[in-house]
């Protein structure tokens, strides 16, 4: 599916919800728990988290692909883990800054 910054995505196999922070243009094959993700308005719970894709997502964490052209933020945690095509997304390291405002 085509993704834009601000797009919301929902897992079809667990509670995970995401917001897209950054996305490459064109078709993006993002999955959660081994199943395609969808717009929350269209997402229906359908099936189980696949074995091997069950590391879970954590609230407030950001996930990226290898070249960081795709970045998503977890707004609701769930049991499935995220992948782009066959490659798992990885947790983006936080670089906490000193509070400034």
């Amino acid at each position: 599916m085509d993704l834009k910054p601000g797009s919301r995505l929902k897992s079809s196999v667990c509670d995970t919800e995401l917001i897209v922070v950054k996305a490459p243009s064109g078709d993006v094959d993002i999955t959660c728990g081994g199943a395609p993700m969808a717009d929350p308005a269209d997402a229906e719970r359908n099936g189980e988290v696949a074995a091997g894709s069950a590391d879970g997502t954590a609230l407030g964490k950001r996930y990226v692909n290898e070249d960081e052209s795709l970045e998503v933020l977890c707004t609701k945690p769930g049991d499935g883990s995220l992948a782009l095509g066959d490659t798992a997304l990885s947790l983006k390291e936080a670089k906490p800054l000193p509070a400034s405002d």
């Binding site: 922070v21 609230l59 407030g60 964490k61 950001r62 906490p96 800054l97 509070a99």
Partner: peptide, 14 residues
Amino acid sequence: RHLVSYIIGSVEFM
């Protein structure tokens, strides 16, 4: 987008 980018780019959630 400006404000959300600023916050998620510079603040660690919780």
